[in-house]
C-alpha cells in the first residue's frame, strides 16, 4: 500500500468509527449551539450588540469546541490499535495525515453547521462578498485546528487528565488560527486586504503539517 493509500484508509476507518459513536453530531455540536445561546442571554436583550458580536462569537465557540472535535474520544487510539498499526507496517506519517484528513472533514462539517446556527441566531452584519473568504478561512482554520489537536492528542495519549491537558496545550497554540479566521472577515469589512490573514492561516497549517509529518516517528514512540 502506498503512503496515500494508507492515509486514506486510516481516514476512512476514523470516519466510520465516528459515524458509529457520533461524538461530534450528538454531543459536541449541540453543546456548541447551547454555548451560542448563552452569550446573548448573558449580554441581555441588546439586538445591536448581538448582531455586532456574532462573527466574533462564532470564532470563539468554533475554536473552543473545535478543540473538542479534534480531541474527541474516537480520535484517542488505544494502545492495542497503535500496536496493530505498527505491526501492519503503517507509516507513522501516513497515520498523522490520515488522522488529519478525517479530523479536518469532521471539523469542516462542524464549523459550517456552527456558521449556519450563528447566522440564524445572531443575524450578523456581514460585508459584501463574504461567503468565499469565510469559506476559505473556515477551511484553513479547520485544517490547522485538526493538525494541532492531532499533535496534542498524541502527546497526551493515555494520560489520566488527557482532555484538560490537551486543551491547555491546544488553546494558546490555536491563537494564530483564531486571529487569521476572525481578521479575514474584519479586513473584508474594512477593505484592508484579506490576503495576509489567509497567508497566516496557510503558514500555520503548513508549519503544523511539517511538524506532524517530520515528528511522526518520535510521536509514535512517545505515545507508547
Amino acid at each position: 500500500m502506498s503512503f496515500w493509500d494508507q492515509a486514506v484508509e486510516i481516514a476512512r476507518v476514523d470516519l466510520q468509527v465516528e459515524r458509529r459513536i457520533g461524538d461530534v453530531l450528538r454531543i459536541i455540536f449541540p453543546f456548541a449551539v447551547v454555548a451560542l445561546l448563552v452569550f446573548p442571554l448573558a449580554l441581555g436583550i441588546d439586538l445591536a450588540a448581538i448582531t455586532r458580536i456574532g462573527p466574533a462569537v462564532f470564532w470563539a465557540i468554533g475554536v473552543l469546541f473545535g478543540m473538542q472535535v479534534a480531541l474527541r474520544q474516537a480520535a484517542d487510539d488505544r494502545p492495542e490499535r497503535r500496536d496493530l498499526y505498527a505491526l501492519l507496517g503503517v507509516d507513522p506519517a501516513a497515520r498523522f495525515v490520515g488522522r488529519s484528513m478525517s479530523g479536518s472533514l469532521l471539523m469542516l462539517g462542524f464549523m459550517f453547521a456552527l456558521m449556519v446556527a450563528t447566522l440564524l441566531l445572531y443575524s450578523p452584519r456581514l460585508p459584501e462578498g463574504w461567503p468565499i473568504p469565510a469559506a476559505a478561512a473556515i477551511l484553513l482554520t479547520s485544517i490547522g485546528l485538526t493538525e494541532l489537536g492531532t499533535l496534542a492528542g498524541e502527546v497526551t495519549a493515555g494520560l489520566r487528565n488527557r482532555t484538560a491537558l490537551a486543551s491547555l496545550i491546544v488553546a494558546p497554540l490555536a491563537i494564530p488560527l483564531v486571529l487569521g479566521g476572525s481578521q479575514t472577515l474584519e479586513s473584508l469589512a474594512r477593505d484592508t486586504g484579506i490576503l495576509p490573514w489567509l497567508l497566516l492561516l496557510f503558514a500555520t497549517d503548513l508549519a503544523l503539517a511539517v511538524a506532524g509529518v517530520g515528528l511522526a516517528r518520535p510521536i509514535e514512540e512517545a505515545s507508547r
Partner: peptide, 29 residues
C-alpha cells in the same frame, strides 16, 4: 501547558519524548 505536561508524566523517558515534541512545536508562537 508544557510544564503541566511534564508534571503529568511520571516515566522519565516518556516525559522526555513527549515534552521534546511539544517543545519543538511550541516555538512557532
Amino acid at each position: 501547558g508544557y510544564l503541566a505536561l511534564r508534571r503529568a508524566i511520571p516515566d522519565p523517558i516518556m516525559r522526555a519524548r513527549r515534552s521534546a515534541i511539544l517543545g519543538a512545536i511550541a516555538v512557532i508562537q
